[in-house]
Design a protein around this nucleic acid. Structure first.
Length: 667
DNA sequence: GGCAGGGTAAACATTC
DNA sequence: GGAATGTTTACCCTGC
C-alpha cells in the first residue's frame, strides 16, 4: 500500500522492525501478519515519522524493562513488581537503547505482560501524537485566521493572497493526510482498532483535531473572503464534481491543486461521493456497484439490488478515515494509470502523426522559415523528405515527388507492411532511415515488423551510427537484432542477405585492421549508386530553382545553412535527436568529389567539415577495394574531429541533402 | 516487355 | 572439421 510506504520513512534497525512485528503478532494473539515496515526508506523525515520514532522508543522501553526483568529474575522482588516496572517513562528508554531481541522479549514476558506493555506504550505514543497534531493544527488555525483577517483587509488590493491561503490550506490538509496515514498504519499494525472506541485510544479522539467538517468550515471561511473558488474551478478542481470526474480533475489540475485534492481527501471525497450517489439515481447504475456486489476496493459485499447497495454504501463506506484512506489510495492508483495513459496517448499521437502527416501535410519549406521552429516540425521535415533532406527548393510550390518511386513509397514506409517487401524505401528515396529509426526506434525494436528499408541502407545506417564508422559483420548482425525485432528471427535469411549486400554493393568497403575485417561505407560509392534523379523530373528542377529564391541551389542553400539563418536547422532539439547524431555527420563525409557535378555540394561541405570520410579511414588501413578503389582527396584530417564537427550540426541529415540534390545532371 | 533495384536462396571459397 | 565470413550467381518480384 502506498499509504504504508509513504509514512514508513524512518526505520531504525531490522531488529527493531522485527521487534515491532513480533510484538504486534504477540499482541494480536500470535497471528501471522505482514509487518508494516515493508516499504522502502526514502530518507524523508517528516512529522509523519514521529509515530514510528515513538514506536521505536516504546520498543526500547519494553526492552529495557525486559532486560531489567531478565537480570532480576532471581530477585523475587522484581518479579513481583512486573506491573510497576511497566510504568517506566519513555524518556528513560530513550536514553538507554538495549540490545535485546524480540524473541528474547517474548520468551521473558508472557503474552499478557506484553499486551499490557504494548497498551501502555500505545497510549503514550498516541497521546504524544495527538498533542503534536493538536499543536500543529492550532498553529495553522492561528495562521489561517490571521491570514483571513489580512485577506479581508487586502482583498481588493492584493488578489494573489489566495495563493497564500491555499498554501496554508494545503499545509493543514497535508497534516490531516499525515494523520490519516498514521491512523491507517496503526490500524494495519493492530495498534488502533478499526472501530473507534474499541482501541486503547479511540480513533475519534485522534481525528477530532482536524475533522472534515473543520476543514470544510475552514475552506468556507477562506473562500468567503476571497473568490478563489473560481480559480480553483478554473484549474479543474471542482469539489462538487462526480466520482467519475475525480480522476480527471486530479490529473488536470495543477500540482498544487492536485495536492490539495489529495490532501483534502475527506472533504472532497465527501462532496464527491455524495454527489455521485445523487448522480447515480439519474444516470444509471452506480459505478461502485456491479454484478450484484460492491465494487468498493476490498469490499466485494454482495448486494441484491441498488437500494441495498446504497444502504451498504452509506453504512459500510461512510465518510470515515478508512474510507478516506482507501479513496486516497484509489486516487493514487488512478493517477498512476492516468500518467500511464498520458504517456501512451502521447506515443499514439506521435505514431499517428508520423503515419498520417506525410501524404497530406504541407512541406516544411513551403512554409515561412520563421514558422518552422518546433522540434516536431523539424522531425516532420526530416521525415517528409527522403533521408531527412530539407529540400528547400523542391517543395516550394509542389510536393516533392519521390524519385523513381511513386506514392507507394510513402505507403510502404509508413504502413510498415509485414513480410517481404520487394520495393523498400531506400533512404535515398523516401523516409530518412535515421529519423525514421529515431522516431520509431522502440516500435521496430519491439514489434516484429520488417523495417521498410533496404538491407543496404540498414547496413549503412548501422555503420554510420558507430563513432568510427566501421563495424564487423557480427556487429552489423548485432545492430540488426538490437534495432529490429524482425531480425531476431530468420537469422539465416537476413544474415545471408546482409553478407550478400555487403559484397554486392561497392559502397561497402571491407577494411582489414588489427582486430580483423570491418566494414565501412564509401559515401561516394553510395551516392554513385543513385541514379540520375533530377534529369527525369523537370518540374522538380524548376521547383527547386524557384523555391524560396534559391538561385544557386546547393551553394546558396549551404551558405544559408552555414550562416545559421534557419532557426529550424539550428535548433538544439534537432541536434539532440538521435538521428542527427548519426546522420548529420554523413554529409561531411562528402568532400571534393571526383564527380564534377556534385562538387558544388561537396565543396561546401568540404569547407565546413573537417571530418574524415570512410575512405580516409580506409587509407589508414589496408583496404580491400572491390572494383573501383575509393578515392580520397583529403585524408589529413584527424579522426578525432569526426565526432566533434558541429558547425553544420544543425543541418538535418546533410547527406540526404546531397543525395537528393542533383549529383550528376546539373549543368 | 525490358530494365533496374531489391530480396532470397544457394553454392563455393576463405578465414577463424 | 565446423562455423563464420565473404563472394558470386541465379531467380524472382516490383516499379518505372
Amino acid at each position: 500500500m502506498m499509504v504504508e510506504s509513504a509514512s514508513d520513512t524512518i526505520r531504525s534497525s531490522p531488529a527493531n522492525q522485527n521487534g515491532v512485528n513480533s510484538l504486534n503478532n504477540q499482541s494480536d494473539g500470535g497471528g501471522v501478519r505482514e509487518g508494516p515496515f515493508s516499504g522502502e526508506t526514502n530518507g524523508e523525515i517528516s512529522p509523519a515519522d514521529l509515530l514510528h520514532l515513538q514506536q521505536q522508543q516504546a520498543l526500547q522501553v519494553a526492552r529495557q524493562i525486559l532486560l531489567h526483568q531478565a537480570t532480576g529474575l532471581s530477585s523475587p522482588g522484581l518479579n513481583d513488581n512486573k506491573q510497576s516496572s511497566l510504568q517506566v517513562p519513555v524518556s528513560v528508554a530513550m536514553m538507554s537503547p538495549q540490545m535485546i531481541t524480540p524473541q528474547q522479549m517474548q520468551q521473558i514476558l508472557s503474552p499478557p505482560q506484553l499486551q499490557a506493555l504494548l497498551q501502555q506504550q500505545q497510549a503514550v505514543m498516541l497521546q504524544q501524537l495527538q498533542e503534536y497534531y493538536k499543536k500543529q493544527q492550532e498553529q495553522l488555525h492561528i495562521q489561517l485566521l490571521t491570514q483571513q483577517q489580512q485577506a479581508g483587509k487586502q482583498q481588493i488590493k492584493e488578489p494573489p493572497l489566495g495563493s497564500k491561503q491555499l498554501a496554508f490550506q494545503q499545509q493543514l490538509l497535508q497534516m490531516q493526510q499525515l494523520q490519516q496515514q498514521h491512523l491507517l498504519n496503526l490500524q494495519r499494525q493492530g495498534l488502533v482498532s478499526m472501530q473507534s472506541g474499541q482501541g486503547s485510544m479511540p480513533m475519534q479522539s485522534m481525528t477530532q483535531a482536524v475533522c472534515p467538517s473543520d476543514l470544510q468550515q475552514l475552506w468556507k471561511e477562506m473562500t468567503a473572503s476571497q473568490p478563489i473558488e473560481d480559480n480553483i474551478k478554473h484549474e479543474g478542481l471542482d469539489l462538487s464534481t462526480t466520482t467519475n470526474s475525480t480522476s480527471y480533475t486530479t490529473a488536470k489540475m495543477s500540482p498544487s491543486i492536485a495536492h490539495l485534492t489529495l490532501g483534502n481527501g475527506q472533504s472532497s471525497m465527501l462532496t464527491t461521493r455524495r454527489d455521485s450517489s445523487s448522480h447515480e439515481e439519474h444516470c444509471g447504475p452506480h459505478p461502485l456497484y456491479g454484478h450484484g456486489e460492491c465494487k468498493w476496493p476490498g469490499c466485494e459485499a454482495l448486494c441484491e439490488d441498488l437500494g441495498q447497495f446504497v444502504k451498504h454504501l452509506n453504512t459500510e463506506h461512510a465518510l470515515d478515515d478508512r474510507s478516506t484512506a482507501q479513496c486516497r489510495v484509489q486516487m493514487q492508483v488512478v493517477q498512476q494509470l492516468e500518467i500511464q495513459l498520458t504517456k501512451e496517448s502521447e506515443r499514439l499521437q506521435a505514431m499517428m502523426a508520423h503515419l498520417h502527416m506525410r501524404p497530406s501535410e504541407p512541406k516544411p519549406f513551403s512554409q515561412p522559415l520563421n514558422l518552422v521552429s518546433s522540434a516536431t516540425l523539424t522531425k516532420s521535415c526530416c521525415d517528409t523528405y527522403p533521408d531527412g533532406l530539407p529540400h528547400p527548393p523542391t517543395s516550394a510550390t509542389a510536393p516533392i515527388t519521390p524519385l523513381r518511386q511513386g506514392p507507394s513509397v510513402i505507403s510502404s514506409s509508413t504502413l510498415h507492411e509485414m513480410g517481404p517487401i520487394r520495393r523498400r524505401n531506400s533512404d535515398k528515396f523516401c523516409t530518412p532511415i535515421s529519423s525514421e529509426l529515431a522516431q520509431n526506434h522502440e516500435f521496430y525494436k519491439n514489434a516484429d515488423v520488417r523495417p521498410p528499408f533496404t538491407y543496404a541502407s540498414l547496413i549503412r545506417q548501422a555503420i554510420l551510427e558507430t563513432p568510427d564508422r566501421q563495424l564487423t559483420l557480427n556487429e552489423i548482425y548485432n545492430w540488426f537484432t538490437r534495432m529490429f525485432a524482425y531480425f531476431r528471427r530468420n537469422t539465416a535469411t537476413w544474415k545471408n542477405a546482409v553478407r550478400h549486400n555487403l559484397s554486392l554493393h561497392k559502397c561497402f568497403v571491407r577494411v582489414e585492421n588489427v582486430k580483423g575485417a570491418v566494414w565501412t561505407v564509401d559515401e561516394q560509392e553510395y551516392q554513385k549508386r543513385r541514379p540520375p534523379k533530377m534529369s527525369g523530373s523537370p518540374t522538380l528542377v524548376k521547383n527547386m530553382i524557384s523555391g524560396l529564391g534559391y538561385g544557386v541551389l546547393n551553394a546558396s542553400y549551404q551558405a544559408a545553412l552555414a550562416e545559421s539563418n534557419f532557426p529550424l536547422l539550428n535548433s538544439p532539439t534537432l541536434v539532440n535527436t538521435s538521428s542527427s547524431s548519426t546522420t548529420l555527420h554523413v554529409g561531411h563525409d562528402l568532400h571534393v568529389g571526383h564527380d564534377d557535378v556534385s562538387s558544388t555540394v561537396e565543396q561546401v561541405n568540404g569547407s565546413n567539415s573537417p571530418r574524415l570520410s570512410p575512405q580516409q579511414y580506409s587509407h589508414q588501413m589496408h583496404v580491400n577495394v572491390k572494383e573501383e578503389p575509393a578515392e580520397s582527396e583529403d585524408d589529413s584530417r584527424p579522426a578525432s574531429l569526426m565526432a566533434t564537427t558541429n558547425q553544420n550540426m544543425a543541418l538535418p541529415d546533410e547527406q540526404e541533402l546531397e543525395e537528393e540534390l542533383p549529383m550528376e545532371d546539373l549543368p
